[in-house]
């Protein structure tokens, strides 16, 4: 099977010309389809920048990045947006649920953006919410949920339209240890179904054990890739 992500000599700098801050200094990375890949490293080493490029929400400078053999850089804004809508699910540290919508409505957003009729979207969302253990909170507003529950809604939202890639930035950092482990169990059991690929950026050493492989970043480069946390 083709790899899910192939990055070669990827660079990215922020800021105005003449005062550039390099964030990625030449990334070479291959993530296999169906694996749970973690990116770890000190603060400011470029983890968020890298998954933003991988997810197609940030343009890089040099090098190439192919997602499922597609070069997002070559697409226009509209095509790239459509590609994300079909192929990528997002999970954030701050959950980022829309506060005025119920859990079902929040979960339905990716389906509705993909043109699924509202009734069917809501039905599929409820089913998804049951799978992540929120069958009793289908019509609740996000503000009435705990952090772990909100993250479950976010995971349901990321999975509901069946994307091939899920990107997560610090999904457990705002949660306590037990809740964080539960969320990771959920990722392993639900998110990886059907050969889906997961890229998770994290600081949280307690969850390293859930990774298939771990990429260690430092100052804009991937310095090592290990198969288990014991090798770190």
């Amino acid at each position: 099977m083709d790899p899910a992500i192939v990055c070669t000599n990827l660079t990215k700098s922020y800021g105005p010309k003449g005062n550039l801050t390099p964030a990625l200094r030449g990334i070479d990375l291959e993530v296999k389809a169906g694996e749970l890949f973690m990116l770890v490293g000190p603060s400011g080493c470029g983890k968020t920048t890298l998954i933003s490029v991988i997810a197609g929400i940030l343009n890089h400078d040099e090098g190439t990045c192919r997602i499922f053999s597609r070069d997002l850089d070559a697409m226009d804004d509209g095509d790239r947006t459509e590609f994300r809508g079909k192929n990528v699910g997002f999970v954030f540290q701050a959950y980022n649920l829309i506060p005025t919508l119920t859990t079902t409505e929040n979960t339905s957003i990716p389906l509705i953006l993909n043109g699924v009729p509202r009734a069917e979207a809501n039905e599929r969302s409820r089913e998804m919410l049951r799978q992540v253990g929120l069958g009793s909170k289908l019509d609740t507003l996000p503000t009435e949920l705990s952090g772990g529950q909100q993250q479950r809604v976010a995971i349901a939202r990321a999975l509901v339209h069946n994307p091939r890639l899920i990107v997560c930035d610090e999904p457990t950092s705002a949660l306590d240890h037990t809740t964080g482990s539960e969320i990771m169990e959920l990722f392993r059991h639900e998110a990886l179904k059907g050969g889906r690929t997961l890229v998770i950026v994290t600081h949280d050493a307690r969850i390293f054990q859930y990774a298939d492989r771990i990429g260690v970043m430092d100052d804009g480069r991937i310095t090592r890739i290990v198969n288990s946390p014991s090798e770190l």
Binding site: A55, I57, D77, G78, T81, E82, R84, G85, K86, V88, F90, F92, N96, I98, I109, P110, L113, N114, R157
Partner: peptide
């Protein structure tokens, strides 16, 4: 802006 950004990331095109 943040929510509009999230929608855009999740595939909401400009016209939406």
């Amino acid at each position: 802006m943040r929510y509009l950004g999230i929608l855009k990331a999740m595939g909401a095109k400009n016209n939406v």
